[in-house]
Write a protein that binds this DNA or RNA. Structure first.
Lengths: 85, 85
DNA sequence: TCATTTTACGTCGCGCGTAATGATG
DNA sequence: CATCATTACGCGCGACGTAAAATGA
């Protein structure tokens, strides 16, 4: 369970497909597909429903994505926090 | 820049030394020392001042740690988010 | 047949532990 | 010399990309 996987899941949710999310983040599409599955496997939960045209978040997926968004945002703030103080 | 590194930095800040933080998180002490340095190198900032008795956060370190805490908390909530909805 | 995801597989970076070294009182 | 951190080094896992296969309209 890594920040990178969180970013992947958020991108998939935003783009609606693994393919679009992968090119958005400049990674190979199978790599992203694999990481989404790894994340679901580790959590023991299906985050996305597979449709012929892409992936759509499940109910539990949406709950997860809200927290993942908070985690990624906080991590980005952490990365830049020293620019202020 | 990973969640694990965030947890390491928080543990070091809490415990006041790499040694204590390492045994708290059940990792070898040099491994944690290395990760702290990797984190500082990646950020380009010294997060902790080295003293003979351990490590104490710098000013920028404290700013970083606040955000890191938020990121780790959010990640933990994400991990358990599906237990509710 | 075209768009998608998934599986298979080899590679490479990196996080880890052990051991050795450095630094400080 | 005791106690801390750091450096050195090798191992193993996992994230990645390429290629091939599956699935569906």
């Amino acid at each position: 369970m890594s920040l990178r996987q969180f970013e992947y899941a958020l991108a998939v949710a935003q783009e609606g497909s693994v393919t679009a999310a992968a090119e958005l983040l400049h990674v190979a599409q199978p790599s992203m597909s694999q990481q989404i599955r790894n994340l679901e496997r580790e959590l023991g939960v299906q985050l996305f429903a597979r449709t012929p045209t892409g992936l759509v978040p499940t109910v539990v997926g949406r709950a997860f994505l809200r927290e993942a968004e908070a985690a990624v945002s906080a991590a980005r703030r952490a990365k830049r926090s020293f620019h202020l103080g």
